[in-house]
């Protein structure tokens, strides 16, 4: 009887269940519990100070948080769209190359190899209003005013987006290039024989084949951008005046600097909803595009 139990399927997957419980489920349950407490990192005894929904009530009535939430959605939307367009363009161009493609693919991936902290410092220096490369470059052409790239209401977010897009567009390019390489040649050649223009071939054959790859790339990047922190933290710290504040810069400040981990965890769970929503949307689209291809 004992031997039979050990052979059961549950026992076979038990190591995986234990590992996932330790690494994922228990921390999730713990952090979810702390979101209902006034837990402060510097006062471990506050872990048992249950405050019910107070943290969530305060978040729901905090207009600054909801502006930050909207700003994060906007940031996500712009970053994903620009990265997609640039990544698709780069992938299409590289796919056309018949000599040196491997070298170009490697060069294209260089920005991905930098740590986000290094990328943040690099772009912070480029956009520095006083000693930055960009303003000094503009001075060479007679521009007489110091542009406050990391201060101005619109430019600050644009500057961070530039850094984020520079560092991560290659992810789209690589995934879409893989998709382009997998497209069968026959339908394209048949279309050309039938007199289709390059645009018609792209729109009616290449793009539908690429759509599953596009949605996979969008899903991966939406999860990444949704928890953007390092680059923003280094370049502006979410400021000035919260102009570049995203959900995770707020959460990190409240969690670590204020040591208010209960509130930070409540905010984290609300932030996760954003990532789940984007992932769900892209997966629905992925399923539809695969069905369209008959997969």
């Amino acid at each position: 009887m004992k031997f039979k139990f050990l052979k059961s399927p549950i026992m076979l997957i038990m190591p995986a269940i234990i590992a996932i419980s330790i690494v994922v489920i228990i921390p999730l349950i713990f952090s979810f519990y702390t979101s209902f407490t006034s837990y402060k990192l510097t006062r471990p005894d506050s872990l048992f100070n249950f405050v019910g929904l107070r943290n969530y009530e305060r978040i729901f009535s905090n207009s600054e948080w909801w502006w930050t939430y909207l700003r994060t959605i906007l940031f996500l939307t712009i970053a994903l769209n620009v990265e997609l367009l640039l990544g698709l363009g780069i992938a299409l161009l590289i796919n056309k190359i018949t000599w040196g493609q491997r070298t170009l693919r490697t060069i294209m991936m260089f920005p991905m190899m930098f740590s986000p902290i290094l990328v943040g410092f690099q772009w912070k220096y480029i956009f520095n209003d006083n000693i930055g490369l960009l303003n000094n470059f503009l001075y060479l052409f007679g521009y007489e005013s110091a542009i406050a790239w990391l201060i101005d209401q619109k430019l600050a977010m644009g500057s961070i987006l530039a850094a984020e897009i520079w560092a991560n567009t290659a992810i789209f390019s690589i995934l879409l290039l893989a998709g382009l390489m997998g497209i069968p040649k026959d339908p394209i050649e048949a279309a050309r024989v039938d007199g289709c223009s390059s645009w018609q071939v792209f729109k009616h054959i290449t793009l539908p084949f690429l759509m599953p790859f596009i949605f996979i790339a969008l899903t991966i990047r939406s999860l990444d951008v949704g928890r953007a922190y390092d680059i923003v933290h280094i370049m502006t710290g979410g400021g000035p005046a919260m102009r570049t504040e995203l959900t995770w810069t707020t959460i990190a400040r409240i969690g670590y600097k204020d040591a208010n981990m209960g509130m930070a965890n409540a905010m984290s769970y609300l932030s996760i909803i954003l990532s789940i929503a984007f992932t769900y949307y892209f997966f629905t689209k992925l399923k539809a595009s695969r069905q369209e291809l008959g997969q």
Partner: peptide, 11 residues
């Protein structure tokens, strides 16, 4: 406002 400090001081 008077631009007597660098534009980037807030950072």
């Amino acid at each position: 406002d008077a631009k007597a400090v660098p534009a980037g001081v807030m950072n």
